[in-house]
Amino acid sequence: MSKQTTYYLVQEDILPDVVIKTALAKELLNRGEVATVKEAVERVGISRSVFYKYKDGIIPFHEASRERIVTIALDLKHESGILSKVLSAVANHQGNILTINQTLPLQGMAIVTLTIETKSMDVDLPLLLENLVSLQGVKKAHLVGQN
C-alpha cells in the first residue's frame, strides 16, 4: 500500500533555513541568474546534497497556484455592474473563467463563486484576490479550493 502525500501551506518564518535557501537556489536557476546547480548552491550557502534533498518538495505558493484551476468565493453588493467589474478584472489579468455561480441576493449581498484557470495569469493568486477586494462593491474574496 503506497503512502499518500500530504501538503501543507506553511509560513516562511517557521521553515528551516536550508529549505528556504533551496527555494532561493531554484529561483536563481529559473531566472537564469546562474547556469548550474553548483553556482546556485554556492550563492545561497547550501550543499548540493541539501538542494537535491529538498528541491522537489518546496514550491512557492505563487508558483503552486499557477497552472491550476482555483475556486474563489466573493461577497458582492447587490448593485448593477459589480459582477461585470469582477469578471473584467479577472480577464484583465489573463484568468480564464470556467464557471460562475451566484446566489440570490439576501440583505443586499450575493455570494458569487468563480472557477478560474490560472495558467496564463500575469499576477499570483493572492494579488488577484487583493485586486478583487479593492473593487467597489466587493466585500470579501477568498480561495475556496484548487486543483
Rank of each mutant, 00 (worst) to 15 (best):
P126K: 13
A40K: 01
V112E: 06
Q4S: 07
A25P: 02
I97S: 11
T71A: 14
L24H: 12
H93R: 13
T36C: 06
N131R: 14
D75P: 03
I58P: 03
S65Q: 12
A110R: 12
S84M: 04
F61K: 02
K77R: 15
T113W: 00
I14L: 08
R43M: 06
D13M: 02
A73M: 02
E79M: 12
L29Y: 04
K85A: 15
Q102W: 01
D124W: 09
L98G: 12
E63S: 01
S84K: 06
N101S: 10
D124I: 09
Y8C: 07
A91I: 03
G108M: 08
T22Q: 01
G45P: 04
E67D: 14
V37I: 11
E67C: 05
A91F: 03
I82L: 07
F61R: 09
T115S: 14
G95H: 06
I14D: 10
L106A: 14
S49T: 11
Y52P: 05
N101M: 03
F51V: 05
K3Q: 11
I82Q: 04
L98K: 12
A141L: 10
L143I: 07
V18L: 00
S49Q: 13
G145W: 06
L132A: 11
A89M: 02
L9I: 12
V18T: 04
I69W: 00
L128S: 05
E33W: 12
V86S: 12
Q11V: 01
G95D: 02
Y7H: 09
Q94Y: 08
N30H: 09
D13E: 15
V86Y: 11
I111Q: 10
H78F: 14
G137W: 07
G57T: 05
L28H: 08
N131Q: 14
P105S: 12
T99R: 06
D75L: 11
L74V: 07
K55Y: 02
L9A: 09
S84V: 02
T115K: 14
V10A: 07
K53Y: 01
L9T: 10
K139A: 10
A89V: 00
A40T: 13
A89C: 10
